[in-house]
């Protein structure tokens, strides 16, 4: 089994005029993964994806797809890539079928692929209606059909759930999982919503202000989330408690009767409760609060921007 990343950027940088957008980005998308590329709006996600497709020329660094340099083999490499960048590019005066057909002809694929991908995204019934009458969600699904047309080994999707209703989002997730699990596809999808990505991704990259703030498996991100867990202690006087015990000096007084302490272990929690009671302080309640993945994501992006 080959473990080389299917998508790899080395020291990738880019600037729009004088404004730097990406700084030494080192993206590594493992083969067979669903890689959630996360970041707030304007962090550089779409720019990165455009660089991966050769739509933009890097200011520095390299892009490698399938182990080959994109700058040297763009046309060959793109035949194995399907992409949906921001709003799908659709011809309003043509039907859904004709839109897919135009791309099929350009790619030189078998005619049967057109009907197959329209069925895959649930647009067979509306295939012969003009696209100008499509809803936003239908247009997004048609864009996805265009990306799926070549049965690509690598699927690059920029904010693919834009305009989809909850059922459409759920269907998309199921489709992405199926593509990865049953067909071994690699999927790189960008989003600014961690909640959307965590339900489907196996790997995550977090970008902030053009720099990677985190990259790894979803499990690694979740582990990082656990290290930021806190004990919430309800007592009579939080400030007195903090002054009494040495291990509480790092605690935060959240309210006159509330202390927040970094969580260390279950044993440490028990010892802390025992020490407070021994020191004559009442413990009304003691529980562990774990930040959500969204909190961790926000923490990562805030840390990077600081």
């Amino acid at each position: 089994m080959n473990t080389a990343p299917l998508v790899e950027t080395t020291d990738l940088s880019f600037q729009f005029g004088e404004r730097p957008v990406l700084h030494g980005l080192g993206l590594a998308v493992p083969a067979g993964s669903i890689y959630g590329f996360l970041g707030p709006n304007g962090a550089g996600k779409s720019t990165t994806l455009r660089l991966l497709l050769g739509l933009l020329r890097p200011g520095g660094g390299t892009v490698r797809l399938f182990g080959h340099e994109l700058a040297r083999h763009r046309v060959a490499l793109l035949s194995r890539v399907g992409a949906l960048i921001e709003n799908p590019s659709l011809y309003d005066h043509l039907t859904g079928h004709e839109n897919v057909e135009a791309t099929r002809r350009l790619r030189g694929l078998a005619p049967a692929r057109t009907a197959a991908v329209l069925a895959q995204v649930g647009l067979s019934a509306a295939a012969h209606r003009p696209v100008k009458g499509y809803s936003l969600g239908m247009k997004q699904r048609l864009g996805l059909a265009l990306a799926l047309l070549p049965d690509p080994d690598l699927l690059i999707l920029d904010e693919p759930t834009n305009g989809l209703d909850p059922a459409g989002i759920s269907d998309l997730r199921a489709l992405l999982r199926q593509l990865r699990e049953e067909h071994g596809k690699t999927i790189l999808l960008s989003s600014h919503l961690i909640g959307e990505v965590e339900k489907v991704a196996t790997h995550v990259g977090v970008i902030q202000q053009g720099r990677l703030a985190f990259q790894g498996s979803l499990a690694e991100l979740q582990a990082r989330q656990q290290t930021r867990a806190e004990l919430v202690l309800e007592t009579a006087c939080a400030a007195t408690c903090r002054g009494l015990l040495a291990e509480l000096r790092t605690a935060t007084v959240a309210a006159p009767g509330t202390l927040r302490v970094p969580f260390q272990s279950r044993e440490h929690t028990a010892a802390l409760a025992q020490a407070l009671v021994a020191a004559g302080q009442p413990v009304f309640s003691l529980h562990c609060e774990q930040p959500t993945l969204e909190d961790t994501f926000l923490h990562l992006t805030e840390t990077a921007s600081n």
Binding site: R50, L53, G54, L55, V75, A76, L77, L78, S79, V81, A83, I85, P88, S89, Y91, T103, L106, R107, L146
Partner: peptide
Amino acid sequence: GWKHLFALPV
């Protein structure tokens, strides 16, 4: 459509 065209293998 240009961005779509130039992201195709042509």
